[in-house]
């Protein structure tokens, strides 16, 4: 039964991901991406990690993507815009895409690395609680990366403001 649910959401995720790349209208692409996020969240639920699932929806679909949509709405580019500019990259993109595909098949299909079982089995999570597990890891083992990330985001925000201001001083001249 749970396998059935998995395949359902896997199919949705793959189709939506394809749609995101293929669809010409940027808003449609963004919506497909949202669908990918939601299907991924469903898979996290199947993996006994509801906290991650909810966080996935809240942060990616609810916050980051909505800003994408916001920007797309403001710029409202035509549906075909940008295709011509990328023509030169097309050959390279096919090359690298093929390389990535080969690599993925090699890793997943050929099992180059033996699959390892992590410490957080469903039983362990059920005993501890998945929210607690994430919290404990975040504030002990991964405290430094966590804080560095927040500083990085702060720097990014400051950088955006600086860049925006610079544009203004140029246009003044």
């Amino acid at each position: 039964m749970s396998l059935l649910v998995f395949y359902l959401f896997a199919a949705i995720a793959v189709l939506a991901a394809l749609g995101m790349v293929v669809l010409r209208n940027p808003v449609h692409s963004a919506l497909s991406l949202a669908l990918v996020f939601v299907s991924l969240a469903a898979m996290y639920v199947l993996l006994s990690a509801p906290f991650i699932a909810v966080a996935q929806v809240m942060i990616y679909a609810g916050a980051i993507l909505i800003l994408f949509v916001f920007v797309i709405m403001l710029l409202s580019p035509g549906t075909d815009q940008g295709v011509g500019a990328l023509k030169a990259q097309r050959g390279l993109a096919i090359l690298f895409g093929a390389a990535l595909l080969v690599l993925l098949i090699a890793v997943l299909g050929g099992a180059v690395l033996p699959p390892t079982r992590g410490t957080f089995t469903p039983e362990a999570i059920a005993a501890e609680g998945d929210t607690q597990a994430v919290g404990a890891l975040l504030f002990t083992n991964f405290l430094l990366p966590f804080e560095i990330t927040s500083i990085l985001l702060l720097v990014a925000i400051v950088g955006v403001i600086v860049l925006a201001k610079k544009r203004q001083s140029i246009s003044k001249q």
Binding site: A34, P50, F51, V54, A55, V57, M58, A61, G62, A63, I66, V69, G129, D130, T131
Partner: peptide, 16 residues
């Protein structure tokens, strides 16, 4: 067991 977070997540989707 993450119902409150779930509500917030759904709330953030309702903007769409």
């Amino acid at each position: 067991n993450v119902a409150v977070l779930y509500l917030l997540a759904i709330g953030s989707l309702s903007i769409y």
